[in-house]
Amino acid sequence: MPVEPGTEPAPPAPPAVRPAARRKAADPWVVRWGLVGATLLIVGGLVVVPLVAVFTHAVGKGVGTYWENLTNSPDTRHAVFLTFVVAPVAVGLNVVFGVAAAWVIARFRFPGRTVLTSLIDLPFSVSPVVAGLVFVLIFGLQAPFGEWLRANGYQVIFAPPGMVLATAFVTFPFVARELIPVMEAVGPEEELAARSLGASGWDLFWRITLPNIKWGLLYGVILCNARAMGEFGAVYVVSGRIGGQTDTIPLQVQKLFDTPGPHGTPAAFALASVLTLLALVTLIAKVLIEPKLREKPAGGPPAGG
């Protein structure tokens, strides 16, 4: 029932009722259901309709056509292959970095620690196009270093190495960002104990640290991978977009979208549906891992300090 301002008698608070439950009941039902309706409309219109549209457009001409659109073009097949090469390499680089950075930042105090922590987030605020550009400026043929590399048989720009660098740049913070709080929450007690019992650094890492941070690491890897496989702007700039050679899935989607005819937009949607599935799998994995991240500090050793 709608409540007139000022007429609501303040009920003596019964201590048995949970405050949260009482708060939920405090809003008049018109407001409550209006806001729930608005939320469903917002999430539906903004997110659900586009998701449904991707799959509908992808398989609109039948599953047979969908499969043909995905598999018939050698350029598309190569784009899928290249994405599954470039993204894992970039993720792998960021995993090694993320573990090293989290170990140093979560376990030690040193001058410049705060600055280092903020610098890790820096790539998030750089436009992907700029991220691609910086590597063109260093490794491109107009640059002395790029020319020298080319003369010695290494090509970075318009080739997979440059695409790995650009992808690693835009996904740089993901793993480290997830690992730092996880490692801080676990605390160094177990590692100190193992150390005092004579464990080597290597043993310490594989037997104590890694098992303690495994969910956080997996979480970071999944988010990092989703962004890496879907990266467009940075790869667009460094790849040169050579069909069948340096196109990844997102770049090939754009090429197909610009191609008129039945092998254009429908094929773009077919390929886009692969990326959309990847996003959905990422999200499901995220929902499954999140509870494990939260239970970790409670299940582990007593939180230090």
Binding site: L46, V54, H57, L251, V253, Q254, A272, L275
Partner: peptide
């Protein structure tokens, strides 16, 4: 929107 590649968002 954080998980979906931007190219897919633009396309759709």
């Amino acid at each position: 929107p954080l998980a979906l590649p931007t190219a897919v968002a633009g396309l759709v």
